[in-house]
Design a binder for these strands. Structure first.
Length: 111
DNA sequence: CTCTTGACGCAAT
DNA sequence: CATTGCGCCAAGA
């Protein structure tokens, strides 16, 4: 992967993240598939870990089980949870309640 | 250059 | 539901 490709992917990932509706959330693997790189969830995770543009709803990206695996990247502990709950997403024990219903698949939006 | 570390995912146990 | 193993891959040590 050339540095240039990395930039493209980063841009693509950010684009998808911006499409996530309020009150919904998606996961790394789904985003990876949406940008044409199935199986590279980990790469997406790395990208999210890096600096994110302000205004990017990064809190709407969790792991495949609805767990807030990126909570550490938000300033104060519990910050990610606050952001989610502030838009109506219930969280219990670091995990989105009713994940199946909250999950938003980028693929369905690329129609 | 090798080894380890992660905002991961999925099937098998 | 909890663990394990394996595939994936860019950064940092």
């Amino acid at each position: 992967m050339t540095p240039n490709e990395i930039r493209e992917l980063t841009a693509a990932v950010h684009t998808i993240v911006r499409l996530i509706p309020r009150g919904r959330a998606t996961n790394y693997g789904a985003i990876a598939r949406a940008i044409g790189r199935p199986g590279h969830a980990r790469l997406v995770g790395r990208i999210m870990g890096g600096g994110a543009p302000s205004g990017l709803p990064a809190h709407r990206v969790v792991d495949s089980q609805g767990r807030l695996s990126g909570r550490g990247a938000f300033g104060a502990p519990g910050r990610m949870r606050e952001l989610l709950e502030s838009e109506g997403v219930a969280v219990r024990e670091n995990r989105i309640v009713n994940w199946r219903g909250v999950f938003w698949d980028p693929i369905e939006e690329l129609s």
